[in-house]
Each structure stands twice: as structure tokens, then as C-alpha cells.
């Protein structure tokens, strides 16, 4: 069973601001899902290598060369807040 503190910690790590009600609901549902995935405890995986993906490729290298990229205007075209030059964010450093 996940405690409300556990779930709040996960929400903080996930950068999700959840209401008390949402936290309770997610907590219940996560408990149910974790109960279900416990079925994997039955499987003997000693000497089994983890498989992160199935593609038969390792690193896909390319030449390190300068290529065209999106023009600034297009890069900023979906920004929630911009001055036309930069992405604008709230102040991060406290003023002395």
C-alpha cells in the first residue's frame, strides 16, 4: 500500500500539482495496478538480460557537421511567452 506521503512524493517528482481528491484517486488506482503487476514476481529472471528495446541497431552515428535548423521565429512560434527573441520564464534567482 502506498501512503499519501509516497504518492505526494511521486507527484512532486513528476511535477504534477494534484488536488487532495486527485491524490486519493490516483493512490487507489496505483495500488490496484501495483497489485496486478506483482504477477511478475512469479517469473524467474535470473540470468536474463534486460531488453530495453528490440531494434537491431546500437548507436546511429552521423557526421558532425553544421546543418540548417529551424529559424528562430518558427522555433518560438508555439512559445507560451516570448519577446520575439527568447522563451520567457518566471524569475528563477532571488534578487539580493
Amino acid at each position: 500500500m502506498l501512503s499519501p506521503e509516497d504518492v505526494q512524493k511521486v507527484a512532486t517528482l513528476a511535477r504534477l500539482k494534484l488536488s487532495t481528491e486527485e491524490l486519493q484517486q490516483v493512490s487507489r488506482q496505483l495500488d490496484g495496478i501495483l497489485d496486478y503487476v506483482a504477477v511478475l514476481n512469479e517469473v524467474d529472471v535470473s540470468n536474463v538480460e534486460p531488453m530495453a528495446h528490440v531494434a537491431d541497431v546500437a548507436n546511429a552515428f552521423r557526421e558532425d557537421e553544421v546543418r540548417a535548423s529551424l529559424p528562430r521565429e518558427e522555433s518560438l512560434s508555439n512559445a507560451p511567452k516570448t519577446d520575439g527573441k527568447y522563451f520567457l520564464v518566471p524569475q528563477i534567482l532571488e534578487t539580493a
Binding site: V7, A11, L13, L16, L18, V26, I33, V45, M51
Partner: peptide
Amino acid sequence: KRRIMLGVFALSEGYSDQYYLKSLKVRRL
């Protein structure tokens, strides 16, 4: 949100071997 929460939990310190790594091994099987 539910899936992000489950994923963050499965990858979090103290749980990632039990959940994420385990699932990658079963995946190979």
C-alpha cells in the same frame, strides 16, 4: 497523469529494480 505517476514511481529510487528492470527482463522472455 495516472501513467506518468506510475512511470515515475516504477523508475524511482528504491523501486526501479523491482519494477522497471524486472519488466525489461520479462520482456526478453
